[in-house]
């Protein structure tokens, strides 16, 4: 019953996220709002991590399986990409490298700066 109890806590948070999203129509998905709410509840110790750890492990362990049906859904939109798959592949490849390089280099440069100013002080 423990897992089910923990699952109901997550569902209530998820529901709150969805309701807030619909009420305020802010452009953040309800699920992400739910995630932010849970983070807030954990940081303020309103919910202790032990109270949701079991369901967290169960859900994250099976995360890949949950995406199978959506992934199969590509069958319905295959027409949209069948003529442009090669340019799409190039775009995905290049932009992936761009994100990795810019993120990594920016943080490395800024961190060096932070560490230096700490030592100086």
């Amino acid at each position: 019953m423990e897992s089910l109890k923990q699952f109901s806590v997550i569902l209530i948070i998820l529901f709150s996220g969805q309701i807030i999203q619909q009420k305020t129509s802010i452009p953040i998905p309800g699920t992400v709002l739910g995630m932010i709410i849970l983070l807030f509840l954990l940081m303020t110790r309103i919910i202790k991590i032990e109270k949701i750890e079991r369901i967290t492990n169960i859900l994250l362990e099976h995360l890949t399986l949950f995406f199978v049906p959506v992934s199969v859904g590509i069958i319905n939109v295959f027409d949209k990409i069948k003529d442009t798959w090669l340019p799409l592949l190039i775009i995905i490849f290049v932009s992936t490298l761009v994100v990795m390089i810019v993120t990594g280099l920016t943080i490395q440069i800024l961190n060096k700066h932070t560490d230096k100013s700490k030592k100086g002080a």
Binding site: L14, M35, L39, I52, L60, L63, F66, P69, V70, I75
Partner: peptide, 28 residues
């Protein structure tokens, strides 16, 4: 796909609660 997705959507349902618990690795 619609016939497959009658059951498929039951599995997809769990994506939403799994997204919420992504807060846990961040918190840790």
């Amino acid at each position: 796909y619609e016939i497959y997705n009658k059951g498929g959507s039951m599995i997809s349902f769990f994506i939403a609660p799994a997204t919420v618990v992504l807060a846990v690795p961040l918190y840790k």
